[in-house]
């Protein structure tokens, strides 16, 4: 079963096609890596799926539910969450509040009068222990190091308990210890049946993690398939990986 399908997706900016008639299918419970040179449309693809930029035409099908116009605040309701290439946190809030905020009730009275339930607080603790930030829970997000910020961002995504995780270069710039935590978190997602779409440049990590590789070029699909098979294609290696 496919967790995420994209059919004839198009997005252009001032006549330049960032995503050009792209169709894809990502199987549930797998890790799919999206690779390609700069400007190939990888981040735009994630921005389209997460509603950050509106779709010009085409459709995104998430867990069988089709959407042509996705509002960003409805993205969690579709079962999707994402991280950003440049880490984006709620900087003026504490580490714990950065996680708690995604567990906020959506109704007015619940939001105003309910305290966070024990269930939510337990979930926050689990997530922060998992990403190694429990000790930092009372620190402001802006005081964290770059790597810690990346881990907090993935922690926020984990807390949302979505079905599909769109991760934009989650491993970039991480020290080995933090990289281990991040890799383990991504593997755990797959082990628990979640689907991960990963934009990544590190080929060793892609070989280690990805079940499926999608290669984009100028917004078009150049190649896709099992990672070993795609990564061994000479034209992919030569044109995009410089190997």
């Amino acid at each position: 079963m496919n967790a995420l399908e994209i059919k004839k997706l198009v997005k252009h900016f001032d006549g330049v096609y960032a995503v050009d008639n792209l169709s894809l299918a990502i199987e549930k419970g797998k890790i799919a890596a999206v690779i390609g040179p700069n400007g190939s449309g990888k981040t735009t693809l994630i921005n389209l799926i997460s509603g950050i930029v509106p779709i010009d035409s085409g459709v995104v099908i998430i867990n069988g539910v089709g959407a042509r116009a996705i509002k960003p605040y409805n993205v969690p309701a579709y079962g999707i969450t994402r991280t950003f290439q440049e880490v984006r946190l709620f900087n003026q809030m504490t580490v714990i509040d950065n996680i708690l905020v995604v567990l906020t009730e959506r109704n007015v009275f619940g939001a105003l009068f309910e305290k966070h339930s024990a269930h939510h607080l337990k979930r926050v603790e689990e997530v922060l222990i998992k990403v190694g930030l429990w000790e930092k829970r009372s620190a402001l997000a802006q005081s964290l190091s770059y790597g810690q910020r990346k881990l907090l961002e993935i922690g926020r995504a984990l807390a949302m308990d979505s079905e599909v995780f769109l991760l934009d270069e989650p491993f970039a710039g991480l020290f080995p210890e933090m990289l281990k935590i991040m890799v383990a978190a991504v593997k755990d997602l797959r082990a628990s049946g979640k689907t991960v779409v990963l934009i990544e440049h590190n080929m060793d990590l892609i070989r280690e993690l990805a079940d499926h590789v999608v290669v984009l070029d100028s917004g078009k699909l150049l190649a896709e398939g099992k990672s070993e098979e795609v990564l061994s294609r000479p034209e992919v290696m030569e044109a995009y990986l410089g190997e």
Binding site: I52, Y73, V75, P76, R82, R88, Q92, M93, T104, R106
Partner: peptide, 17 residues
């Protein structure tokens, strides 16, 4: 919390619902 999150980064606030 939602107000403060939005004040920090409105786009990310939307993404988290």
């Amino acid at each position: 919390k939602a107000v403060r999150a939005m004040s920090d980064d409105e786009e990310v606030a939307k993404i988290v619902g």
